[in-house]
Design a protein around this nucleic acid. Structure first.
Lengths: 184, 184
DNA sequence: GTCTATATACAGATAGAC
DNA sequence: GTCTATCTGTATATAGAC
């Protein structure tokens, strides 16, 4: 019962997480669901509009998952673990985080999409900082919550990037070991 | 006194670190130094050959810099600091590490270039591990040298990626603060 | 080593019919 | 919402002259 717009979005999201925005075209998007490229333009006027849709869709789903973690877990350690596991599930599909991939292509994005990307990273860091501030007694470190949040998120994005090239999950595993050691 | 091949390599290296391999063409490369695209093909038969040249060139220069750090510094802390500063100088030019950028585009690379990319990351991690093993008494951590090396490198690559989008140097700064706290 | 010229393919995008 | 048809630009790549 999925409409074509929905199919296009899902396929494009996956393809961009694998190969980047420049790796997809209106033609290939169309072919994959059996329509013509001009019909894709009906749903997404241009590539910038498509990118915006994907970033918004990905962000919404991501922050919904973060909210879930905040609500359904008790200990800081368990929350951080669940957060890292989101990235592990991306790695298992041999993809990057959508925003991590687009970050490499930022020069090809317009200003409004760059702003959306930046917002994704900043808001994720804010979510981590809030977590840490809610459980100050469970943190084993002198590093500030802000610095911890920034290094954790960029560390996970980098781990996805390198692990996919090397062909294992060792960097994600190392990041997990490192950051779990910060929480009792 | 630079030959055209040298000019092409330098321009391409910079352009790929900024916008990725898919953002450059034989045409634009040619125009930037005032020749025709067919002449670029004389120097680099195809894009795969160009990519290989860039990875090898970048890796050689990078590992020469690492050797320099190994030789000219005494304390582990000073060596790690110098290593991180290599990434800071890349960030200042608003670029990514060449191999970090190509890691995002790995699906568009052939097998031999993927192997070169992987080698770059693995060899860098080995260099860090060796450093750590040479100064066991200067490490303040229970994390294994291997895990530290893997998380440090992927953390720095991720920091370059995110900082460029957000438009500051905060993630690189956070990584530096975090890892410097591991060494006396 | 560099050129002109060209082959071939694919890209984003739009007009207008149904 | 989807189609056919088309415009325009750009890509990789090669043949052959100079």
């Amino acid at each position: 019962m999925k409409g074509n717009r929905e199919k296009l979005e899902e396929n494009a999201l996956n393809a961009v997480q694998v190969g980047g925005l420049k790796s997809i075209s209106f033609r290939t998007m169309a072919e994959e669901i059996g329509i013509k490229s001009s019909s894709v333009h009906y749903h997404f006027p241009d590539k910038s509009d498509l990118a915006r849709t994907l970033i918004e869709r990905y962000s919404e789903e991501f922050f919904r998952a973060l909210k879930d973690i905040s609500n359904k877990r008790w200990k800081l350690r368990s929350k951080i673990k669940a957060f890292i596991e989101i990235f592990e599930s991306v790695a298992e599909a041999n993809k990057l985080c959508l925003c991590g991939m687009l970050a490499a292509e930022v020069e090809q994005l317009d200003q409004s999409n760059r702003a959306l990307l930046s917002e994704y990273f900043i808001d994720t860091e804010k979510w981590i900082v809030q977590l840490l501030n809610e459980h100050p007694d469970e943190i084993i470190s002198d590093i500030s919550p802000t610095a911890l949040a920034r290094s954790l998120l960029s560390g996970l994005e980098g781990a996805l990037l390198l692990d996919r090239v090397v062909g294992d999950r060792q960097r994600l595993k190392a990041q997990k070991e490192l950051y779990m050691s910060y929480f009792s």
